[in-house]
Simulated scan of single mutants.
Amino acid sequence: MKFDTHTAFDLTGRVALVTGGSRGLGEAMVHGLARAGADVVVASRNLDSCKETAAEVERDTGRSALPVSAHVGRWADLDALVEAAYERFGRIDVLVNNAGMSPLYDSLDGVSEELFDKVIGVNLKGPFRLAALVGTKMAAAGGGSIINISSAGALHPRPEIAPYSAAKAGLNALTVGFAHAFGPAVRCNAIVAGTFHTDVSASWDSEQFARRAEGFALQRGGQPEEIVGTALYLASDASSYTTGALLTVDGGQR
């Protein structure tokens, strides 16, 4: 099979569901997938934000976009999300498990059970459930791509993000497990994302981050659009022999 650069990244006729799709990396990927031809399901807890992003997608790309309110940490919400997507489009070809959270805490012994469970729920339990639901349907339909958005924190844990790092390390393990569970029809990969400048980064100590970024090969944080190319690769036929992979997009952190 010859590689056709004109069609390999074309997602025309496909449907992509992106959690955490109304802001940050998720919003950038929603727009990128739509520009490549996909209809999109924009999911997050804030329905108004989802509607705004969906309207922008339809205006800018001409693709159909479905906004859905869903809390990734609640399995009932995920069941309803999948039902809504299939009711509207009849299929999901690309699932991007992007929603995540890493709340601040003062000390490790001050981490409450509620906070710990919330971090695990959104970053690990929810992606497991959604990948299980959608992956089963994808396999029955003959194919699809699951993309988990992991974190460099899973590979470089720090005390201030310990629960988050553990959850993302678990997501890395699930990525490989699902690749084998749903192969050969369905591919499952993870983008191990580094530090990106999103709305969340507005609260960072800019001087402290600048000092930390000096240790990156690129010596800076990423822009949300800089994750889109990797997402398109994994969503499309360009990555037809890539599964169970953890692809690092972190500017060369160490």
Score class of each variant (00 low, 15 high):
residue 3 F to W: 03
residue 4 D to G: 07
residue 4 D to F: 14
residue 4 D to R: 14
residue 5 T to D: 05
residue 8 A to Y: 13
residue 11 L to Q: 01
residue 12 T to F: 06
residue 13 G to T: 14
residue 13 G to D: 15
residue 13 G to M: 11
residue 13 G to F: 12
residue 15 V to K: 03
residue 16 A to V: 12
residue 20 G to L: 12
residue 22 S to K: 09
residue 25 L to H: 06
residue 26 G to Y: 15
residue 30 V to D: 02
residue 31 H to V: 01
residue 40 V to T: 15
residue 43 A to N: 09
residue 43 A to C: 12
residue 44 S to A: 15
residue 45 R to S: 05
residue 51 K to R: 15
residue 55 A to G: 12
residue 56 E to A: 15
residue 56 E to H: 09
residue 57 V to F: 07
residue 58 E to H: 00
residue 62 G to Q: 08
residue 68 V to F: 10
residue 68 V to S: 08
residue 71 H to M: 04
residue 72 V to D: 00
residue 72 V to S: 03
residue 74 R to G: 05
residue 78 L to E: 13
residue 78 L to H: 10
residue 85 A to I: 13
residue 87 E to Q: 03
residue 92 I to A: 06
residue 94 V to P: 04
residue 100 G to H: 12
residue 105 Y to W: 12
residue 106 D to V: 11
residue 106 D to Y: 08
residue 109 D to F: 12
residue 122 V to K: 02
residue 125 K to N: 10
residue 128 F to E: 04
residue 133 L to I: 05
residue 137 K to H: 10
residue 138 M to V: 09
residue 141 A to F: 05
residue 142 G to S: 09
residue 143 G to C: 10
residue 145 S to Y: 07
residue 145 S to N: 10
residue 146 I to K: 05
residue 147 I to A: 07
residue 152 A to K: 11
residue 152 A to M: 12
residue 153 G to D: 11
residue 154 A to R: 01
residue 155 L to C: 02
residue 161 I to P: 03
residue 164 Y to K: 10
residue 165 S to R: 04
residue 166 A to W: 03
residue 167 A to G: 07
residue 167 A to L: 12
residue 169 A to Y: 05
residue 170 G to S: 11
residue 172 N to M: 12
residue 175 T to D: 13
residue 175 T to F: 13
residue 179 A to D: 09
residue 180 H to N: 10
residue 186 V to W: 00
residue 188 C to M: 04
residue 191 I to Q: 07
residue 196 F to N: 11
residue 198 T to E: 12
residue 199 D to N: 15
residue 200 V to K: 00
residue 200 V to H: 01
residue 200 V to W: 00
residue 203 S to C: 04
residue 207 E to K: 13
residue 210 A to K: 13
residue 214 E to D: 01
residue 214 E to G: 01
residue 219 Q to D: 13
residue 220 R to E: 02
residue 224 P to G: 01
residue 227 I to Q: 01
residue 229 G to H: 01
residue 231 A to D: 06
residue 233 Y to I: 06
residue 234 L to W: 00
residue 235 A to F: 14
residue 235 A to K: 05
residue 237 D to G: 09
residue 239 S to M: 00
residue 244 G to R: 09
residue 245 A to C: 12
residue 246 L to T: 10
residue 247 L to H: 00
residue 248 T to C: 08
residue 250 D to Q: 01
residue 250 D to H: 00
residue 251 G to N: 01
residue 252 G to K: 14
residue 253 Q to K: 02
residue 254 R to M: 10
